[in-house]
Nucleic acid binder design. Sequence first.
DNA 1: CGGGTTATTGATGTCAATCAACGAGTGTGG
DNA 2: CCACACTCGTTGATTGACATCAATAACCCG
Lengths: 256, 256
Amino acid sequence: MVHPFLRKLRHGARLTKDNEDILGRLVESTRLIGAREDVVPFGEAPRYLPLVVDGWACRYITLENGRRQIVSLFLPGDLCEPFGILPRFMDHAIAALTPVVIAQVRPEAIRAAADASPRIDEALWWDLLVASAIDREHLVSLGRRTATERLGHLFCELHLRLTMIGLVDDDEASYDMPVTQADLGDLLGLSMVHINRSLQELRRSGMISLRDRRLSIRDLDGLRELSFFDDGYLHPFGALSLLNSSDVSDVGRTSR
Amino acid sequence: MVHPFLRKLRHGARLTKDNEDILGRLVESTRLIGAREDVVPFGEAPRYLPLVVDGWACRYITLENGRRQIVSLFLPGDLCEPFGILPRFMDHAIAALTPVVIAQVRPEAIRAAADASPRIDEALWWDLLVASAIDREHLVSLGRRTATERLGHLFCELHLRLTMIGLVDDDEASYDMPVTQADLGDLLGLSMVHINRSLQELRRSGMISLRDRRLSIRDLDGLRELSFFDDGYLHPFGALSLLNSSDVSDVGRTSR
DNA sequence: CGGGTTATTGATGTCAATCAACGAGTGTGG
DNA sequence: CCACACTCGTTGATTGACATCAATAACCCG
């Protein structure tokens, strides 16, 4: 089975077999971490970059009064920090939402890989840009979208991100959603109760079904419209102009 | 006068005179852009990285229904995109909030600078990490902080960011706040009306005064406490462990 | 002087938080 | 095998924070 990190990066640059061998070697030493445990705690001086191999993880920040906000959601293949360098200390924490397998990547190794091939370099920067764009849309959700819009947007985004790494059942547009409603609340800046009611609304309107931690999107177009989802920010076909300078037409929100 | 870009990067790495010369040469070609104009519009294939030399700018996203969310606020010295590479198209827009001077930096030039010296490389990655951390705290504000907390947190953050580039009057902790209340609403995910009322509350409680686009923080400690502000995420004394491996003690939220 | 932008205020409505309770499922230990 | 605790999802009632709508005043600019 191809590693999800590679599967994802293939969307960012045309990788050769050689490229993939080099990248594959980054992902050797792994650890298993239980659900709800910290992968990297707040305040620590990290010694490696965490890369999710299997399971779901998140970046979160806790406020002094106990409120928690999940800032980023990490799926298999996601690097939890920018690849260039290690922060001197963590101003946030990384935690496992489900049991996860984490690869411990050293920044020197990943930069050596980037130096070894412009395509690897391109793929890594593409990944960084996409991760930033995901965080930005998340911020827009919290600032300007209603509860059902936030949920709908998240489900559309996950549908695409999981498709990129082959974790979606295409026939019925369904995938595993292994997080609790409380987690969704912390992710979307809402209370657990309100998540519950908004999910019911999405079910009632026939957009989704969600049972036993499995989500099926019944009406993908409807969900996209409802939540103002535009997949452009995920740059699913590569997004860089440094190496590939093919032109772009008809992209994005305003032109559709 | 030292360029704000340099002033800021000095907080991220110990730059030599040589280093600063190299970085200074990146900031040559500039353009002037009027308030409210786009620096880089949504959907465009950008040809350079915008760097704010003077004035305030922002990154924003507009939804189909007209709602707008400002995602990042850019002050003098801020690079508006990650330095490594240009996106193939803009999934957001960059706009001037005040009249701004923008330097047009080419990614090849900035990467050449990074390759020329490990300290420049360190400073640029530090800047990228800090910019990400600022966006994360912004997201936490939208998700989990009340209106007055959001404003207080923003004012504390600006106080530090502007201090780094020498734009704060230290005697009275005051600085220019050249944005409208409507802009603040779009930044903090609130309505203009509610911004107005929350500002009044901060004034009434003696935390701040704000007149004629000038903000004075009357009670910095009080404002920090009120808004759960912890400056650790701005890594004001350098934050990387790749080159400087000095140890860290007593940092951050949980340890205070 | 008229028109635009910005700040301000009041009245009203709504979305979502909070508080509280309950049931189903699961795992555990006596 | 059952009592118990615990997590998770669900529901009802109430409260609260913020949005929306509308109007006005101050200011600047041409």
